[in-house]
Design a protein around this nucleic acid. Structure first.
Lengths: 116, 116
DNA sequence: CTGTATCCCCCTCGATACTG
DNA sequence: CAGTATCGAGGGGGATACAG
């Protein structure tokens, strides 16, 4: 997080947004929660190939910290922890779906470029 | 860039998109180009406080490499280099403005959280 | 003005093993 | 099942100096 959000003369709100939802995994995590609602830790892991436990825990904590996702622990054995978007996190949905759509276009474009 | 874009079972197109436009500076660079059109190296630098020459050059090269921005060198002294979005880069515009809007909401939300 | 070239630190991230 | 602990490699990123 930037120390002083007020020294953002022009387009740096974009930077702030990128810090919140950017990085290697956050986008994928958020997309799945936006797409499917409530998901357990293990369900998220299955949906994000390549991520390991450490990273998943790590990123989930950061998203929880800034109020984008909610974490619910059930005191049962075996343990069960649910993750979902908060009310504020829901405001990300249009962005995430647009991001996904653009990502598909981007992949197609890269393929077209490499084939020319 | 991910090696095999095809091993993206579910929401990983979001990951791919984040790799292309994510990171500390790319969002800001793209936003300014989307907002103002053609900008010179030095103009970009002035608009992105905190970035240094190395990083600006670095990120511009990456964006150029994947076909999002176009670089035009004018053989004059002193040198002049223009940057602008490519036709494909233009498809990012709605995303960037939405990103900026959400970033503002996010900043407000963080302030509200810390004041509660 | 628009870059390269070095140097180096830190922090992210991955692999693996272990725990309640 | 859902984590934590530890270690280590790698690269992102900054400061500075130099070049065309």
């Amino acid at each position: 997080m930037r120390d002083t959000p007020n020294d953002c003369p022009f387009g740096c709100t974009v930077e702030v947004a990128m810090e919140a939802i950017g990085g290697r995994w956050k986008g994928a995590i958020l997309f799945h929660l936006a797409d499917e609602g409530v998901l357990r830790f293990g369900q998220l892991r299955k949906r994000i190939p390549g991520i390991n436990q450490r990273m998943l825990t790590n990123q989930l904590r950061k998203l929880e910290e800034v109020g984008i996702i909610k974490r619910t622990v059930f005191p049962v054995v075996p343990p069960r922890v649910d993750y979902e978007l908060t009310e504020f996190g829901d405001t990300l949905k249009p962005l995430l779906f647009q991001l996904k759509k653009w990502g598909q276009d981007y992949i197609d474009f890269q393929i077209a470029m490499s084939e020319e």
